[in-house]
């Protein structure tokens, strides 16, 4: 007696079609990445040389360089690091270790999740109104850094909280059972153990800050800057701003200069991401709970 109609052939065919479809779309992302890198390299490689790194922007494509943008990005990222990392990690510690369940903690948590989703251009509007105009910081590095810090703060807090949460509770209890105070426990055990995770998050946040363009355009950073900033009150340019500037010019030659700038930007980001991966691997070897 057999009441089943297995219909095997048809089902196997469906299965195969579905699998190949999934496979095709999955490998498409690799294809996109390769095409993007190939395209940018073809366009920009011949402009990429030491002069390009050492020259200031110019009206002539052959003389154009990214010196001021490179220095501007370095300044900006250093300032963002100094401003956002302590505050971000402190917030994460407070939310994860001190106020884990209260109503206030819940409110702040929802708030941070939403801040992480606010479009970057809105942060630009905020920076323009508060830092550039209200505090009269003008189009300075510090105005840009403050704006960018607010933007990456949620990223750092969320990543740091995850890293703190990954530290086993037994470590905290072990410390408390030795008569440690809460801060001693956090400072000596929880923070060191979560440091690799926090650092990975911080690096990702900093790469976000290096690549962001819109908020800086909002605060007026898109200007001709032919010098290296010497103080936090100086005007500045950054790599993505310079790339946007070149890419939006009509001459085809500047398209290629923009590609050269993109190669530099991508190399910087690649270095940062590689560092994050190395830290992650190191931590996996060191902490096997």
């Amino acid at each position: 007696m057999n009441n089943f109609n297995l219909n095997s052939a048809k089902r196997k065919k469906n299965e195969r079609i579905f699998k190949y479809l999934c496979q095709l779309f999955t490998w498409m992302s690799l294809l996109i990445l390769l095409v993007l890198i190939y395209h940018v390299s073809i366009q920009g490689l011949h402009y990429l040389n030491l002069d390009f790194l050492n020259n200031y922007p110019s009206r002539f494509p052959d003389k154009a360089g990214i010196k001021s943008a490179l220095w501007g990005s370095t300044w900006l990222i250093s300032l963002v690091f100094i401003l956002s990392v302590p505050i971000g990690v402190a917030s994460a510690i407070y939310l994860e270790e001190y106020e884990k369940k209260g109503r206030l903690a819940r409110l702040i948590e929802i708030n941070i999740a939403n801040l992480a989703g606010v479009p970057s251009i809105v942060y630009g509007i905020l920076g323009l109104t508060i830092f550039v105009r209200f505090f009269a910081l003008d189009r300075s590095l510090i105005a840009g850094a403050l704006t960018m810090s607010l933007l990456v703060l949620p990223v750092i807090i969320i990543a740091a909280r995850e890293a703190l949460r990954a530290v086993p509770q037994s470590i905290r209890h072990g410390a408390y059972a030795l008569g440690a105070t809460q801060w001693q426990t956090i400072y000596h055990h929880v923070l060191p153990a979560s440091l690799p995770g926090i650092l990975t998050g911080v690096i990702l946040a900093m790469s976000r800050a290096i690549g962001e363009t819109a908020p800086l355009i909002m605060i007026g950073a898109l200007t001709y800057v032919a010098f290296i900033p010497e103080s936090v009150m100086d005007p500045f340019s950054t790599l993505p701003i310079q790339i946007f500037n070149w890419a939006s010019r009509p001459q085809a030659a500047f398209e290629e200069v923009a590609a050269a700038g993109i190669i530099v930007l991508l190399l910087v980001l690649l270095t940062m991401n590689a560092t994050a991966v190395l830290i992650r691997n190191y931590a996996q070897r060191k902490y096997r709970w």
Binding site: S170, I171, H173, G174, Y176, A177, L178, Y287
Partner: peptide, 19 residues
């Protein structure tokens, strides 16, 4: 509680040495 815990120590179910 901090003072209590340094006078009354504890060993846990699963070993929990610090890393």
């Amino acid at each position: 509680p901090v003072d209590i815990r340094r006078r009354i120590g504890m060993v846990f179910q699963k070993p929990n040495p610090f890393p």
